[in-house]
Design a binder for these strands. Structure first.
Lengths: 199, 199, 199, 199
DNA sequence: TATGAATGAGTTTTCATTCAT
DNA sequence: TATGAATGAAAACTCATTCAT
């Protein structure tokens, strides 16, 4: 009847997801009651379970119905040098985690909740590392592709641990700069001068 | 009452801590009830609150009354080369996390529970990085100390993320080897040939 | 709207009744949700309440819109002797309860739900007993009509309890044979040799 | 501290059972909420689940922790004749079901709730039939033992169905008298004059 | 020092029913 | 005649914590 009824209806499910995402990220999955989600979303508590059979299904919806950060990361890289690209992609990744952090944080924090979440956490990590490696491989001054991938994983580990687990965002920037320098050098160096796997 | 009452008490208290540590690591803090801890520890439920005023105090006891892994890591490094030491320390760290993983996992997963835990998580990370840097600094073929610290943080990030968050222990070893090679090369290379912080 | 709308309605209504009958019989009235009935009937949940004002009305529709088993029982008896007729009617009754058991089971199990159901349960019992007595009264070798009615009630009690309450259908057949023999003897015997109601 | 503390403590569990028994019998298992049981028992709702892990466990406790009616039935039989004993035992059984009916009613009504209850229902029936047969076998003027057992099952079926399922207690007495006469005649008659199992 | 019953607020979830379309 | 999202009261069950002994 009313003009916005149609919009409101299709929006409520999405609204529940967004509210839950925010609360899960802030307080954790277990510490957030479905009643609070419903209250803060402005919907009756029954509606949460009309759209999501269980609380865990709501968590899975948050985790699965979110876009992959790849696009953001990829578009952020336009530098020529490895160093420039690294700087761009780390900045983009940190920003993305910061801006859209909820789902990411949830995935890593609640990995223990069920195997599906744990799998998704591993996927997100692999995806991010692949994107970073991809971005770096476009640089002019690049070394061995295998080393690029290994380096990408190191970088992603550092950023994820900092932001997702340790929650430090201010002081992280400085240390990330040092890391970028180190990794850039590593990737642009002529390569190992000693045989691998020998002590 | 009896002469060994004191001993009995600490034994039971310790048993509660160990049981809680295991259950928190397996199922998470929120998902583990104090009743279950008491049951699996074989003590009456009242005893948990006789020894620990609140459930959070029990968590803090687990986190604080655990030895630092530094000693283990340090003693594990006796190689001469950077690569050898890296290999030893990564292996020791992985083993330590594996063997005594509970407290570590809890610290990182439950960092959101209270500021005290979050602080402890940051401490553990810094401590591990410092130890790794310390171990590496004893190598013969070492470069810049600042770079060593940055590299140590990268390595620790990678291992922590793998084992604590992603929970992958089998496949991790292979990728750790590649990482060790890369970082060892990085640290034994002549250093940056280009100016820092310039794109 | 369309010409066959009327047909479609009664079809869906009938489908709801049949599905509800099955589910009530399997799981009980309380343990069956209207949403499940709608789901298993393949109709939208709102339709259940379009056709039946309340859930109880749906139960009453099941109970009231079912044909009486008398016809089946009556037609099943063509033997000459009491024993033959008993055997036929018990077999028919068991088969009827088995085949069309849902409504019968519901009536007896949910007798407590409302007085209307309780009344219907008593009616069904009386009806069955009357039919059995009627069938038996056609036999050649019959005794006192009052005793026939009492015997019919005994037989019906036994069969109903076995199938409706105890749910035993396989082993019941054997015991029913013994019962048939006993009751047949009872009805064809010369009658009481001692005065009634005297200890 | 107080004199009745000890008594009260050990009594609460029993009080919950008794209250639940009454409510289940009056309104049915599903239609009785645990909150109501707690309220009417005068205990906090949590205590119900402290003593009984689930609502079904409470039902099972009611069903399993009740004495068997055999003793009552057996002691009620002191007559000499089959008729006298039958009258006594039927009266005792009806009284027992009436007095202590809750558990019995529950067992038969809620047989669908779980296999354990269904099994118990069958057990109670078999037990009652065995007791009645046992009582009858002490009479002077008895016929075939196999027929006694079959007759006992018939009698028990009739009484159970009347009181437990149909809930009729007043009018039942009269019809029971007719049944008693019939069965007494049957058991004291010289036995079948025709071969069994032949139409 | 220990015990285990007790407490009651809180949790997730269910569900008959309504209603705008 | 249908539809399916919406509603909110109530259900079963949990649990950290207390306390008399």
């Amino acid at each position: 009847m009313t003009a916005h009824a149609d919009t409101a209806r299709s929006t409520k499910r999405q609204h529940i997801i967004e509210t839950a995402e925010r609360l899960f990220a802030e307080h954790g999955y277990d510490a957030t009651s479905t009643a609070r989600i419903a209250h803060e979303a402005g919907v009756p508590s029954g509606l949460v379970f009309y759209h999501f059979a269980t609380k865990l299904d709501l968590l899975l919806a948050i985790v699965n119905e979110r876009p992959t950060p790849s696009a953001v990361l990829r578009s952020a890289s336009r530098g020529r040098s490895v160093r420039g690209r690294l700087r761009a992609v780390v900045s983009a990744m940190a920003g993305e985690l910061e801006h859209n952090r909820a789902a990411r944080i949830i995935v890593f924090r609640e990995a223990q909740a069920c195997p599906e979440i744990a799998t998704r956490a591993a996927e997100l990590f692999a995806e991010a590392a692949a994107t970073v490696a991809d971005v770096l491989s476009g640089a002019d001054d690049l070394a061995d592709p295998a080393r690029v991938r290994t380096a990408a994983e190191l970088v992603v580990s550092r950023v994820f641990l900092d932001i997702v687990v340790l929650g430090q965002t201010e002081s992280a920037a400085k240390r990330h700069a040092a890391m970028i320098d180190l990794v850039a050098d590593m990737l642009t160096s002529p390569g190992p001068r000693t045989a691998r796997n020998s002590a």
